[in-house]
Nucleic acid binder design. Structure first.
Lengths: 207, 207
DNA sequence: CACCAAGGTGCAGACACTGCAAACTTGCAG
DNA sequence: CTGCAAGTTTGCAGTGTCTGCACCTTGGTG
């Protein structure tokens, strides 16, 4: 049959749960994009998703999480990916390739990101949580880099590389999530890293 | 007289207001550093500061703000400072010098920052709000850079420079706010910017 | 001294979020 | 197909954040 492989082990129970989850995050994203996150209550979201308010909190700890859908495993995944890059690669290169792999693997829904950015634009403080699932992930990236370089965990260098990489990632997705003229995400990200590797020269300085 | 200029126009009323404000933020910072921000209620803070709960909200919109004391003018201040830098300076240099000026002017209390970092370490998502008063300020920096370079406001380059500068600033203050071995803030910041300007070479690559 | 504006306070109320226990659904074995 | 065990949904009570409003107190001013 055409049934996806996941369906073999997935019963009615798990399917419903997954449906409820996406119904909730869809409702949250749509409503927030329409009226702005402040003018959406959890009751609104639950009602549109067709479940009780209490159930909402069984799936997401807060309104924000329903909109952003943080990836809890991303931190550890990033960690192992960075440690598995070839030894000879410079740190920034390793991080760049790791991120390109990641966005290549995870199929990112452009339309969804456009909506999400509409929300984030009204709440700039969500920016960091939105892209790398928060500052904690960046921390783990910094730790992985420190380990890779045999440096103490609180050394300036790995932290700066991680923070700069996070900056590049945020800028790339922000640009890519613009309604008009959406370029290829991998290209924008590569461009941002290229600029970082060149020391951020002024546009007039580059031929 | 030795009386500061501000005291001339400041009556009892304004003095009390200022005292209440610092009493509240002191109480918030101390309590949060002791027990962690989650285990501190606004009532606790108000009680220690000797005012009513309602009064707390007349001064700060939230617990977090009392601990972080965001600087609302920072965005516009940064903007004019960046636009006033000499024309010939590369963007990253202009931002570096601007930030060095800023931390030189504002007298930053080291002890207070150490406490604040204890809180932030338990709530990494506060990191951005803590240092540049949030992502909105970084946005304004990006806008100022775009204007300076005659680029569209949503161009990749100014956004990336602003984000990278924010990263450097965060890393510098994080390092400086460590209880042990607190180096000079300006030095750490300069070092971070130097690394950025060099394209973040691996430590082994630098002689 | 008398008035006024500004700050402090209490109260009611909206909303976010959590723990608990009851009701219900699904998966599975007998 | 029947019934039990496990997982899910839900209501409810309770805590805590935060806001608008009305009242009161007090410093500044003429």
């Amino acid at each position: 049959m055409a049934t996806p492989a996941t369906a073999r082990t997935e019963g009615l129970r798990d399917r419903k749960k997954r449906e409820t989850r996406t119904a909730l995050s869809d409702a949250a994203l749509d409503l927030a994009a329409e009226r702005g996150l402040d003018h959406v209550t959890v009751d609104d979201i639950a009602e549109r998703a067709g479940v009780s308010t209490r159930t909402f909190f069984n799936y997401f700890p807060s309104k924000e999480d329903a909109v952003l859908i943080p990836d809890d495993d991303l931190g550890t995944r990033i960690r192992t990916m960075v440690l598995n890059r070839p030894r000879h690669e410079p740190p920034l290169t390793a991080v760049r390739e790791m991120l390109l792999d990641e966005i290549g693997t995870a199929d990112v829904d452009h339309h969804r990101w456009v909506l999400r950015m509409q929300v984030v634009r009204q709440h700039p403080d969500l920016l960091n949580r939105a892209f790398l699932s928060g500052a904690a992930t960046e921390q783990q990236l910094a730790n992985a880099l420190a380990e890779r370089l045999d440096l103490p965990a609180d050394h300036t260098y790995p932290r700066l590389v991680a923070a700069a990489a996070g900056a590049a990632f945020r800028v790339a997705i922000t640009r890519w999530s613009t309604p008009t003229d959406p370029p290829v995400l991998a290209d924008v990200l590569s461009e941002a890293f290229h600029l970082l590797e060149r020391g951020l020269p002024a546009p007039t300085e580059q031929p």
